[in-house]
Amino acid sequence: MDVKKTLDHINNQVFKNTLMTTLEIEVVEIGKDYVVATMPVNSKVYQPDALLHGGATVALAETVGSLASHVSVDLEKYYVKGLEITANHLKSVKNGLVTATAKPIHKGKTTHLWEVKVENDQGDLISLVKLTTIVLPKKK
């Protein structure tokens, strides 16, 4: 897999005209068992108190977790859908860049469980998210 080409395709084609574009989410790394993406913290993702909105954080986390699930299955035979997401927000962020890293807790035949850590520019954990996805066979 040509990682640079894959990142370019995801960021400029797959994410085109989606929530990921609106929130300026950019996938910056893809590995065998992880995906990393960033999102700027600015007025687009603020809650009324001028802090990063938890929903924007969850959207970032679901993006990396779902993508991680997608890249770990044969997409010609299967498709992936989200089942459940939970988030614990531990710290607030006013500006800068947040980085989300998805790593597997469990990758079974039909369900995947991902841990997503969202950190601020200083590497502080701001949210800890768990995402469950389901892997379903495509109908022929």
Rank of each mutant, 00 (worst) to 15 (best):
V118M: 06
K16I: 04
V35S: 08
Y78C: 14
V98E: 11
V116Y: 02
T21Y: 03
V116K: 01
A68N: 04
V93L: 14
G65R: 00
P48M: 12
H112G: 11
K109Y: 09
K109A: 14
G55I: 00
E29I: 08
E115Q: 13
L52Y: 00
E119I: 02
V116L: 03
A102T: 13
K109Q: 15
D8Q: 11
I105N: 07
V73D: 07
H106T: 14
G55P: 04
H112S: 12
V14K: 09
V45Y: 00
K94P: 00
T57D: 00
S69Y: 02
K16R: 11
K77P: 02
A102V: 14
P48N: 13
V14N: 08
V58N: 06
L75A: 06
I10T: 02
L67F: 07
A102N: 13
K81R: 10
T38F: 10
N95Q: 15
L83K: 15
H106Y: 12
I25M: 07
V36P: 01
N17S: 06
T22N: 07
T18G: 14
G108F: 03
L51Q: 02
E29A: 13
N12P: 01
T63K: 05
H112Q: 13
H9S: 10
L52F: 13
V80L: 04
G65I: 05
L83H: 10
E24M: 06
E24Q: 15
Y79D: 07
V64M: 02
H53S: 15
T38A: 10
A50E: 11
I30C: 08
V27Y: 02
K117F: 01
A56Q: 03
T111N: 15
I10F: 06
E76V: 10
S69T: 06
V73F: 05
E29S: 11
V118R: 03
G96E: 13
I105V: 15
E24Y: 03
N11L: 06
D8G: 10
G123S: 06
P104D: 14
Y34F: 12
I25E: 04
E119H: 10
N11P: 04
H106K: 15
K44Y: 08
V35Q: 11
Y78D: 15
D33C: 07
E84C: 14
T111G: 05
E26Q: 14
H70Q: 05
T99Y: 01
H89D: 03
K103W: 11
L51N: 03
L60H: 03
V118T: 05
V73L: 06
T101N: 15
V35L: 09
K91T: 10
P48Q: 11
K32Y: 08
K91E: 14
H70I: 07
T63E: 08
F15Q: 00
G108L: 07
